[in-house]
Design a protein around this nucleic acid. Structure first.
Lengths: 162, 162
DNA sequence: ATAGATGCAAATATTTTGCCGCCAG
DNA sequence: CTGGCGGCAAAATATTTGCATCTAT
């Protein structure tokens, strides 16, 4: 059996830690991308998010910090970050409609495991997953730059109570 | 135009292993779900599709068979099929905007491997993937009912020519 | 006969675009 | 200074819903 790591939050520099000053912000600076006031705010929201947010939620939080930020800017910034591979875009199997969710891209890929009944989403890392990606690279002659896995099912709790 | 839609597999990999037409129709009948004229058409389109279609494309094809079918019915039917686990919903990493694509759910899960440059999508099956899902079920106490993996990268061809 | 489907139109939701003034570098 | 960025409004897409009517079973 391969080694497993469930919900590991301390592999090196996992993000989403309030105390750490903008991991994302640094990344952008490194790439000499213009850092505007609005971008700073969106980055801050992403860096501090402890769960997956959709564009609307990101806008909400951003406006609490700086009410001037508009929806359009949020979309444009998300697009920027996405194209630089700094955030991932998920839809969590469309559990709650056709929204898209965003999370800052950690150092290691993880799988999103969602309960179709209670909606809880759990993150899962596995050596097996890394192996699978290597296999794909070899067998398909591919250089993988993004990988996304989303799994839906019923958690123990929901099976018992329903 | 006749309904001679032959299943062409562009990636060299086998796609829908259910060679018999009307696999979906049967499934619905088995579940004693009302089979209307419109549903038959949408099912036929899905069964004969050789590539992933979005809602608009499904509507187009359906209307070629029966012009009376409306967009709304397509959405409602897709929803029905989705909730019965008979089709999968993908977004192919939003390679071409935020559309959603649908494919009839074969007997075995496969991974979608897309080239971010040329856009070619290949399907990939692996025992490793099956193991990974088992691992998730065990470690998370989950009963998995849907699993979706989409991978993006650059294929050999594009790396060489780019 | 009747629960459930469809069609139509309109409402929602979500994301993108054109244009112009403004600001970070 | 200046080219990229943000704001505004409106457009383009995408999806859902209310309601009257029709139909598969």
């Amino acid at each position: 059996m391969a080694q497993t790591a469930v919900r590991r939050v301390s592999t090196g520099e996992r993000i989403n830690v309030h105390d750490k000053p903008g991991q994302l912000q640094k990344q952008l600076a490194n790439r000499s991308i213009r850092l505007t006031r609005q971008r700073r705010v969106v980055l801050q929201v992403m860096d501090n998010a402890s769960r997956h947010l959709d564009a609307g939620e990101i806008l909400e939080r951003a406006q609490k910090i700086d009410p001037q930020i508009t929806r359009v800017t949020v979309y444009r910034t998300l697009d920027l970050l996405k194209h630089h591979g700094l955030i991932d875009e998920l839809d969590l199997l469309h559990l709650r409609g056709h929204r898209h969710y965003y999370e800052s891209h950690g150092p290691r890929d993880h799988i999103h495991v969602a309960c179709l009944r209670c909606g809880k989403v759990r993150e899962f890392e596995s050596e097996l997953y890394e192996q699978l990606k290597k296999q794909i690279e070899q067998d398909c002659g591919m250089e993988i730059s993004v990988a996304r896995t989303e799994v839906g099912g019923y958690c123990k709790n929901c099976r018992d109570s329903g």
